[in-house]
Amino acid sequence: MPFWACVAGTLMIACERRNTAIPVHFGYGRTATEKEIATKAIAIRPDGKGLPAGSGTVQNGALIYAAKCASCHGTTGVEGPYNILVAPDTVDAPPFDQAPKRVKAIGNYWPYATTIFDYVRRAMPFNAPGSLSDNEVYSVTAWLLHANKLIGADAVINAKTLPGIVMPARRYYVTDSRKGGDGPYE
């Protein structure tokens, strides 16, 4: 290789190095507007952040449940054929790790009541997801909580009351601690 080519090559490499330093910002994409964030950010946190205005009752929930949910989940939430939703926690129930057949449902397995609102609003009914109004979702949530013996028949569910409901299963939840390696199996 002639000397000049070598020098030119070195210069080009040096040049390239400068150009390939990774920028912090590429400037791709567009700024999300407050409005579209408000429309799309539908997730509800366990502290209730994200819950919309409106409210629901057990009575209204019973009507909506019978019309739009019962065909999959059963008249009282225990018949199926799809996910069983009602199973109140009981003191004498065997612990889940010893009872493979024990039904897992809202009353005995769900750790947060806010999850019911979030999930029903985004994904239910299965054949018409996202079709319920916020008030209807509050009412279905109320009916499900009542059927699982977590609230009274005249309770009103809204952004204030829902996060305050203590779910019996919450105390059983632990965060994964498996680490691999040659320790005991967890």
């Binding site: 010893q98 750790p111 947060y112 979030d118 939840y173 498996r178």
Partner: peptide
């Protein structure tokens, strides 16, 4: 956020009546 898939699903009962959550790996 405690979504349905990380609470009522994709969690597993473990010893002493516990329910293990965020078992990612």
């Amino acid at each position: 956020f405690m979504t349905r898939e990380e609470t009522s699903k994709y969690t597993e009962p473990v010893k002493d009546g516990k329910i293990r959550q965020f078992s990612f790996t």
